[in-house]
């Protein structure tokens, strides 16, 4: 699997993402600057977390209009895989690659803590190394992670099975207490209709080595590497 990580000014999670990808694939991912327009040769394009363009106007708004995004859109259009984490998820929604938007956390507080995610389906290239219904731990670090979409969009997402992760209790219960940022229907991560574009707020790349305090996020990267091994 050849992976590329898109870097915008203000992005700060690209090196952790590179560690997670290199560990899973054995190859160093390519760092792609936001002014580049050629993503040919890449199987996976990752948009990592951070605060692109200082979160000016809206989180992800500026990055979503950067030159590289037409190439990301074309990559997705060809059926290429795209992973957006945290600011990356915000950028994918702003770019129209995933529906909905990420609003200010309902509590108005920046959340820097662990959450638990329930895997809603395991038959995707991103979740194949998890079990359906499995709960895993993932760190949160965001001020705007409150997923919003109108009822029709939410019903469509659920009907088509495109909700991939939900905020859950450690036991897997979906309730308000586990929904730390106030997201509608506890949604933490969604996918495109072809299941090749995934966006999620929490950081699986932060738990891929016992030295980081756990390996809960490792199956996501190992599963991707296995799915895209060529």
């Amino acid at each position: 699997m050849r992976a590329g990580i898109v870097v915008f000014p203000g992005i700060n999670r690209e090196r952790d993402m590179a560690i997670a990808l290199a560990q899973a694939t054995g190859a160093k991912p390519r760092m792609v600057w936001h002014t580049e327009t050629d993503l040919s040769g890449l199987d996976l394009v990752v948009i990592p977390g951070g605060f692109s363009f200082g979160d000016y106007l809206r989180t992800g708004a500026m990055a979503a209009r950067a030159p590289v995004m037409d190439a990301v859109r074309a990559h997705a259009g060809r059926g290429g895989h795209v992973l957006g984490v945290c600011n990356g998820f915000q950028i994918l929604t702003e770019a129209g690659l995933l529906p909905g938007a990420l609003l200010r956390n309902a509590s108005l507080r920046f959340l820097s803590m662990d959450c638990h995610l329930r895997v809603e389906r395991s038959d995707t290239d991103f979740t194949r190394h998890y079990q359906k219904g499995q709960v895993f731990r993932a760190p949160l670090a965001h001020g705007d992670g409150n997923y919003f979409a109108d009822d029709d969009t939410l019903d469509r997402l659920e009907g088509e099975g495109l909700v991939i992760f939900r905020y859950a209790s450690e036991e897997g219960a979906i309730n308000d207490a586990a929904n730390l940022n106030g997201s509608r229907r506890n949604i933490a991560g969604i996918a495109s209709p072809n299941l090749r574009v995934l966006g999620l707020m929490p950081h699986p790349e932060d738990l891929v080595d016992p030295l980081m305090g756990g390996t809960d996020g490792k199956p996501l990267f190992d599963g991707l590497a296995a799915a895209l091994a060529a």
């Binding site: 809206r58 708004a61 209009r65 929604t93 529906p99 938007a101 919003f148 979409a149």
Partner: peptide, 9 residues
């Protein structure tokens, strides 16, 4: 429509 507002929200 293209930048200043996100018409989803």
């Amino acid at each position: 429509r293209k930048l200043l507002a996100n018409t989803v929200i």
